[in-house]
Amino acid sequence: MAELHLPATLPPLFPGLPRELDVEAGSVDEAIGRLDEQWPGLRDRLCEPGPKLRRHIRVYVDRGPAELTTELETGSRVDVIAAISGG
């Protein structure tokens, strides 16, 4: 079970989606897939065709930079970050 922390901009798009939740997944991609099953369309908000992470989305696993293929272990902390950009 991995511990997911989502950006503040995401929950308003999907009713019932919390900022923090636990997900059973073996990789970042799989974790996003689990969320997409429960909140259809969520993958599109984080990923673009490829699939790859959107340009202004970053993922860190246990504080280290991660990609969709990064593996997760029991107790992994996954931080999904919307870039501090824009105006």
Binding site: L13, G41, A82
Partner: peptide, 8 residues
Amino acid sequence: ASEWHGSA
């Protein structure tokens, strides 16, 4: 279209 979350 959001810079962060794409088009919808």
